[in-house]
Design a binder for these strands. Sequence first.
DNA 1: ACACGTATGAAAAACGCTTTCCTGATGAAT
DNA 2: ATTCATCAGGAAAGCGTTTTTCATACGTGT
Lengths: 340, 340
Amino acid sequence: MKFEAATIKDIAIALGLSTSTVSRALRDSHEISIATKQLVLEYATRINYHPNPIALSLKEKRSRSIGVIVAEIANSFFSQAINGIESVAKDKGYNVMISQTHESFDKEVMTLQYLASRSIDGLLISVSSGTENLDHLKALHERGFPIVFFDRIVEEIQTHKVMVDNFRGAYDATLHLINKGYKHIAVIAGPENLSISRERIAGYREALAQTRVKPGKALIKYSRYAGLQLQEVEQAVSQLLKLRPRPDAIFTASDKLTTNCMRVLKSKGIRIPQDIALVGFSNSDLIELLHPPLTVVRQPAFEMGQIATSLLLQLIESKKPVKEFERKILNTNLIVQASS
Amino acid sequence: MKFEAATIKDIAIALGLSTSTVSRALRDSHEISIATKQLVLEYATRINYHPNPIALSLKEKRSRSIGVIVAEIANSFFSQAINGIESVAKDKGYNVMISQTHESFDKEVMTLQYLASRSIDGLLISVSSGTENLDHLKALHERGFPIVFFDRIVEEIQTHKVMVDNFRGAYDATLHLINKGYKHIAVIAGPENLSISRERIAGYREALAQTRVKPGKALIKYSRYAGLQLQEVEQAVSQLLKLRPRPDAIFTASDKLTTNCMRVLKSKGIRIPQDIALVGFSNSDLIELLHPPLTVVRQPAFEMGQIATSLLLQLIESKKPVKEFERKILNTNLIVQASS
DNA sequence: ACACGTATGAAAAACGCTTTCCTGATGAAT
DNA sequence: ATTCATCAGGAAAGCGTTTTTCATACGTGT
């Protein structure tokens, strides 16, 4: 079943004009008489004419759409960020194409390939936890393709980046645990290849350094899939529980990691915070309904999406190659509740 | 900054052939000699040639992309459904464009307008709670534009529809409450103009009818924005609490409604289920971490997305106008936990 | 009456691709 | 020797726009 839309040609024929006249009338060119404009405009609205965006894209060599690659849209942080992205993009007449990697490197490469072949004008990406190699991004970037990183950024590629102060967020959360009197604070972070994991671990270390405690290596766990896989978190937690002295607090450094860690602790019958305190990065809007309500580090996801999109559009619409890149660092927000 | 991709013309010039020969060689036409094909193919891979999808779209009058309109992607049900949609669409080489209405009718009309003008080949939609008028959808549908409804369907428009057995889901949930001994069961549903609200209320009524209790009108509340606005839920709950006898259980008929109702009850210091039991539709994956873990009616969201997409692609790719429409009704799943 | 400027609008090109219609050459059949 | 069929490949049209170039008619000033 096809569906035919009205074209400029239809209008031209119906009105006995040439397509160029119609085109100019529609774009309100001064070389068309008022009367003709009136006529064309009226007829166009009557038959509900809309210029074919595909024809326009072909002509202008731009599709007015941007690609977004995230791990999972079913993740509060990302869905909030996407809301921010959409709000700015739509505002500027851009369309947003969303793709998910589910934390798989292969999917990231494929999806990037796919989006690029769909002729998007630019890309917003928070790399997957499985990303070990940057060739796919570098290739695009080197050809002058506009890319902006947000959240999980990549240091090796020179372009705009939007993130939170991960170090500070982790530092604050850990310090909070210290102040609450916890002595043996463990951390579970995403994979080490992600800069956010490293920064958050660094913040954690720095807070502990204040107490003159150098955390044993055993207290630091990395999670290959950033907590997406429950059994991976299960394993990390089990290992932590075997330590002596047993950790009395866990700091989880990403959204899924936090809720899945909570799930694991519950399933093991461990009480939060009596047995072990839990503090983590999370943007879920259900945290205060949890048992117990979680103390979380919240990121300004919506705002990050907005800023990243503005920067991307700036890049896309810039006439000359951009050489100076922004590195926006936003603040996190520690919300203290009963879990710590 | 623009970014130039190789075209068929580049290849033609480089190889001293005509564009038509190159085109045919690339699509493996029999009218091109093996040697020429080899030559073209090799050169094409070497310069990393990819056909321009926009030019293709213009030529073929199809964009190979479908639009999706939902209330909110930051809603478990919808993000799961979108996963299902994406999995099928990507598999068939289609691109997915997602738009949110945030339960606003105006946004729905605008976004539909926008998507249609972006020349999508078809539409998947779960109408917004604010949808009171169907002209925008009817207009499109009448022009032969492929549409498939899922979740929140519209009876007046003849096309494929995918939904759950809302009546049964609500019936089961209510019956569960009855069996648990609750006597005064209230319900909060989405707006009355949505068929899912009406069906869920009907299921609720039917279960109560079994107990020979005809629920007073006061026990049934509608929520204009399907629970998206907290204060709306707050108001409904407050009214319910004023009733005498006070309801001892609430059945909430949608995702946001359920969590927001829980939020309101908590803020009022009402214990669940001791003071009031709570059962609701929800696809959140955090329900077992809540306090208390919620008894929920779960929908097969991923599967719904998949089925709806298959049906839509079928519609799009059908040569002749489709006259027979499917009405797929899936089963819900009652997950009993501590809240009831 | 002549060149000239000024509206007005038509024709054509271009974007990248596919496809229909040709052309030129070769070899077979009459 | 002439006609035909066959094959490889080129030229051009068309998809819907915008834009550049070109054409016509009308006044105007001399």
